[in-house]
Simulated assay, not measured.
Amino acid sequence: MLFLISSIYLLQTGCKNINPNHQKDLYSENFNGKLNPKNWVPEIEPLANSKVYTDNGKLVLDTKGGISVWFNQPLQGNYIITFKRKIIVNGGVNDRLSDLNVFWLTEDPANANLFTRSGKFEDYDNLKMYYVGMGGNTNTTTRFRKYQGNGDRKLLAEKNDAHYLLKANHEYQIKIIVKDDITSFWVDDEKFFEATDEHFPNKSYFGFRSTFSHQEIWDFKVFKD
C-alpha cells in the first residue's frame, strides 16, 4: 500500500489529494500562503541574506548557504514526482547559476527523525539516499550519487557537458521515477540518470536541495505509478 496518509489529513494541512476519484494522482502543492510546516520542513544554514518563503504560488529559495526543504510525507512503493524549477539570475544578492539539487529515497539509519540537520551540506553525509547535483560547483558539474549511510557518497554517474548544465532563468520540468528496482531522474523529458537497486527503503522522503543561489519551485505533484 502506498502513502499511509489520508486525503482528509492532506486537505486539512494544505497539501491536497489532487483528484480523489483518480487513484493515480496522490499529492499536489501550489505553495499558496505560508509554507505549511506539516508538509514542508526547511533546514537552512544560518547565514545573512538567507530566506525561504512562498510567493505567488512558488516556493522561493534565496540563500547564501545550504538549504534543504523536505516534503514531510513518507513515500512508499512506486511513484513519480514532478515539479518545475528555475534558477534566478537577475542581479540579486544570492543570484548564482548553480545547484539545482534533489534528495530522494532518503532515510536516516541512525535516527527515526530525519529532520535534524542545519542545512550545511556535510550534515547529510550519513544519510541513505539518492542525490543529483545539477550544475553544482558554480555550474561546472552534474553528478548522480548514492549515499550509503556511512559517509560514503558513491558517484554513480557524471555528465558535465554544457547540455547537462544549467541555463539561467530557464523553466525546468523535473521528474523523478521510482518503479520496482529502478529509479531515474529526468529533465525536460530527457532521462539524465538511472540506477537499479534491489533494496529501496520501505518508507523514505524527498527533499529539494541547493546552496548559495536564488531559485523558484512550483507545480509540485506526486503520482502513483
Results as ranks from 00 to 15, higher is better:
Thr211Val: 03
Lys38Trp: 07
Ile44Gly: 02
Arg145Ile: 00
Pro46Ile: 05
Gly136Pro: 05
Asn56Met: 04
His214Met: 03
Gln173Pro: 00
Val102Asp: 09
Cys15Pro: 01
Lys154Met: 13
Asn39Tyr: 07
Tyr172Lys: 02
Asn72Gln: 14
Ile182Asp: 12
Ile177Arg: 09
Leu61Gln: 11
His214Phe: 00
Glu29Met: 00
Gly207Thr: 09
Ile177Asn: 06
Asn94Pro: 08
Ser98Val: 11
Asp152Thr: 15
Pro37His: 04
Gly33Thr: 08
Ala157Leu: 04
Trp104Glu: 12
Thr82Ala: 00
Glu216His: 13
Thr138Asn: 15
Asp108Glu: 13
Asp123Ala: 12
Leu47Phe: 09
Asp188Trp: 11
Trp40Cys: 04
Lys224Thr: 13
Ile176Gln: 06
Ser184Gln: 12
Asp188Cys: 11
Glu194Gly: 03
Tyr172Cys: 05
Trp104Val: 10
Asp108Tyr: 03
Val69Asp: 05
Asp225Gly: 05
Thr196Arg: 12
Cys15Gly: 08
Ile217Thr: 14
Pro201Ser: 07
Asn113Thr: 12
Asp189Pro: 01
Pro74Asn: 10
Gly57Val: 04
Lys24Leu: 10
Pro201Gln: 09
Asp189Met: 02
Thr106Gln: 08
His22Ile: 09
Leu11Arg: 11
Phe220Pro: 06
Leu166Cys: 07
Val222Tyr: 04
Lys159Glu: 12
Trp186His: 13
Gly57Thr: 04
Gly14Thr: 00
His163Trp: 05
Lys64Ala: 14
Ala110Met: 05
Tyr147Arg: 14
Ile8Arg: 11
Leu11Glu: 15
Asn90Cys: 05
Ile182His: 12
Met1Glu: 13
Asp152Phe: 03
Phe83Thr: 11
Val41Thr: 15
Pro20Ala: 10
Cys15Gln: 04
Tyr164Gly: 03
Val132Gln: 04
Ile44Arg: 08
Lys24Ser: 15
Ala162Gln: 14
His170Met: 04
Leu97Arg: 01
Ile18Lys: 00
Gly149Trp: 02
Gln12Asn: 14
Ile80Gln: 13
Gly14Pro: 00
Asp188Ile: 14
Lys58Trp: 07
Ser6Glu: 03
Asn101Val: 05
Gly207Pro: 02
Trp104Thr: 11
Asn169Thr: 08
Phe115Ile: 06
Ile87Ala: 10
Asn113Leu: 03
Thr142Gln: 04
